[in-house]
Computed example of a mutant assay.
Amino acid sequence: MNTPPPPRPSVRRTRLATLVSALCLLVSGCSAFGVADDGPDTAGGPDGGMRVTLVTHGGEGDAFWDLVRRGAEAAAAKDGVDLTYVSDADPAAQADLMRKAVRDKADGIAVTLAKPAAMRGPVAQAKAAGIPVVGLNSGIDAWRPTGLLEYFGQDESVAGRAVGDKLDDLNAEHALCVVHERGNVALEARCAGVRKTFRGATDNLYVDGSDMNAVTAAIAARLRRDSSIDEVVTLGAQYGLSAVKAVRQTGSRAEVATFDLDKDLVKAIQGGEVQFAVDQQPYLQGYLAVDALWLYRTNGNVSGGGTAPVLTGPAFVTRSNVSAVARFAAAGTR
């Protein structure tokens, strides 16, 4: 689990009793938006500032989640929020982290729903305690049934279908979709989306995403067994680079495409080793999740009206447009 960052400076906040009462009249009751009517009217930080906990399913040292965390930290610094970042890839452990945030009386919680069933109980506990909860990154089909206030992320099914269309445009015939976490709803939706629109064949390959050498070996083994595979689609930037290694090792004719982006993947696109990446803007997801909780607490704002997600992707990054994002990737924000 990543070590939470040191507390950010806090700012004095105005009491919200009058604002909350007025807001409730406008929206016919705050409980409809996931906050108890008798919820706290002030934030609970040591200096009166707001305390937010971001609970993700990201693995330790994962470059993608570093981007999410940096975005969240940037919003926290801007808003004077005391941010705690915690994560665990195990759904039961992630649920325990959220329960701890409830016990610690956080003023707001942002959470990913990679395994939605595991998070329903903790979300209900947060709502009962009057703590607003927003979702990000995973669970676009589950955030409303789970009772979250808002959601920030990519529609993974739409993104997958867009990739399938792009593979058709590239005249691919046989795609291998590499899933690095079995049962993750977002990852499964990506591959299902590819299969839905791609006119060629699509096979899934399940790998252990915590062992990059094993990922490379598994992709290489499949490429050796099936020479008809002409496209490897991975679901994370680092796995795209593993696929590049596997193609090199085997001498396969397969091209590589991936979801997600980081500075090393940008270089691979610039060098022609990766055809394209689907950018869901993880930095933006972290930023918006924290900022949304601050806006809700201080001004009663609800993005999407509490009924529609705020989409941060998909956008295709190819060799023709990669220069536009390269400097941001080098700075660690794309």
Rank of each mutant, 00 (worst) to 15 (best):
P6G: 10
V11P: 00
T14C: 02
S28L: 11
G34P: 13
V35F: 05
A36S: 15
D41S: 14
T53V: 15
T56E: 02
H57C: 00
K78V: 11
K78E: 15
D82A: 11
M98C: 03
A101S: 10
A106R: 01
D107G: 04
G108T: 02
G108M: 00
T112I: 12
L113K: 12
P116D: 05
M119G: 05
R120H: 02
P122Y: 00
G130P: 12
G130M: 13
L136N: 11
N137F: 07
L149W: 05
L149A: 14
Y151G: 06
R161W: 09
V163E: 01
L170P: 06
A172M: 02
E173T: 13
H180L: 06
G183F: 03
V185E: 08
V185L: 07
G193P: 06
T197A: 11
G200D: 00
G200K: 01
N204I: 04
Y206P: 05
V207D: 04
V207W: 04
G209N: 06
V215C: 11
A217G: 08
L223T: 03
R225Y: 00
S227K: 04
V233W: 03
T234G: 03
Q249L: 14
E255A: 08
F259V: 14
I269P: 00
Q281W: 03
P282E: 12
Y283T: 15
L284N: 10
W294F: 09
Y296N: 12
T298F: 00
N299D: 11
A308R: 15
P309C: 10
V322L: 09
A324S: 12
A330F: 01
G332M: 14
